[in-house]
Design a protein around this nucleic acid. Structure first.
Lengths: 242, 242
DNA sequence: CAGGGCCTATCTGTATACAAAAGCCCGCCG
DNA sequence: CGGCGGGCTTTTGTATACAGATAGGCCCTG
């Protein structure tokens, strides 16, 4: 009974690892053979991935792997920042209780422990990613709106819009440590603003915080070695033509 | 081959007209009988309507008609305003060409012609809605981002988040004419800001413009007669308990 | 009389068969 | 030699059959 789940997971994996080329037509019979499930769960998986933006449906029927241009990725990040900004403002304006603020501060402390290290290894980055995701999730939760959260979930599902999408890619890059310091400063300011009920400030910080991801993406896309370590980046069509 | 389309349209209609109660379980065999198509297109329709937020999937499998609380509707409107604000800012910052600005001004003129009338009938409101939707669509287009547009489309799909959702409901209300004047003033300022490349101003106007819809919703929900004329409003659960 | 467990009816998830449509290739004609 | 048309293959959309799971009702028991 979890054939459908299997189909989604495996198909998503195939696309994110670029084992299915962007723009490639996805024929259902072929996928049946490749995924080992029947067409029914494959169709539901394709529909799900369409919402996630990983596949696009063709006017004549059927699907193909989504073609994502570099600008799309930047736009997705700006969009995420905007919606997270709204969440941060709503969180600030809702006068959050201490328990939630404490959880934010706890995330902050975890992040601090990682950032303070001289040299960061893969495990450090993974710890950072986990705490970072929790931080953002708590703020989204503080906003207290299901509608907002569902929308945000959907936006973050875009593989490069996600906050922690490129962290792994830059693990080896020299700029990465400084960037984490800056991001951490913003985390701290964001908690301050929310605790003080400063909605506009919280919103603006959240937006600018997301823009770090744009900068990261640019750096990583300019660096072939970093790209090689994150197969998902192959999904992004550099250069130009439509 | 358009069984699937038929299923989506009819099911959406049934839900929006409140002929299926919020929270009601949607059994597929029952829908087969009611819609006259087999389970396959019904399932795909249910999946589609889930994205639109009209139905929710149950953890144990299957779907039910979405339960939408009043606060959800307000949140959806705020979210729409925020994303339209982003679109307006991007439009302003993109230095739009004259052709597009002319189309906006054309919409404005059409809206003016309606608003200037002493008494508004149903046709007037319908003309207003059409021009209003075109206005918003042009701005979204000016932003020039597919990612943003797809996300906005999805947000507007929520029946009460849409800009013109309650216009019909307030056709009979006394406040409606003044509200249109105010909205129209905002439209004018928005064009100004975009033409002048004033991104921040454009963004703020778009946000505040959306908030008019919140005010409208509140008025309409307080007015039983107005509610009766728009069945979709029955979807919204007033009062409280979760 | 109330609570719990079992049984049954129904539903969902999955697979598959079938028909209509779409795309493609080859051959034919200009 | 190139463009177009027709037939063929493949594919999608739809219907339906089947199995596992779920929920609800009924009976039995304490």
């Amino acid at each position: 009974m979890q054939q459908s789940l299997k189909a989604v997971l495996r198909l998503r994996e195939l696309i994110l690892e670029a084992r299915l080329a962007p723009g490639e037509r996805l024929s259902e019979p072929v996928l049946v053979e490749r995924l080992g499930v029947s067409r029914t769960p494959i169709r539901s998986a394709l529909a799900k991935l369409e919402h996630e933006g990983l596949v696009e449906s063709l006017p004549s029927g059927g699907y193909r792997v989504a073609v994502i241009r570099e600008q799309d990725a930047y736009d997705a990040i700006e969009l995420r920042g905007t919606v997270e900004g709204l969440a941060a403002r709503m969180a600030a304006e809702a006068s959050p209780n201490d328990a939630a603020l404490d959880e934010l501060r706890d995330c902050l402390a975890t992040l601090d422990r990682v950032v303070r290290r001289k040299q960061l290894d893969i495990d450090d980055f993974q710890r950072y990613m986990a705490a970072n995701e929790r931080f953002h999730a708590v703020i989204a939760g503080l906003a207290g709106s299901d509608v907002l959260n569902r929308s945000l979930e959907r936006i973050v599902a875009l593989p490069f819009a996600s906050a922690s999408a490129f962290l792994m890619a830059q693990a080896g890059l020299p700029e990465s440590h400084e960037i984490l310091f800056i991001a951490q400063h913003q985390h701290r300011c964001l908690i301050d603003a929310i605790a003080a009920g400063e909605g506009t400030r919280a919103e603006e910080i959240a937006r600018e915080h997301a823009r770090i991801a744009k900068q990261n993406l640019r750096v990583v896309l300019d660096n072939r070695k970093a790209m090689a370590s994150v197969p998902e980046l192959r999904l992004i069509q550099r250069a130009a033509e439509r």
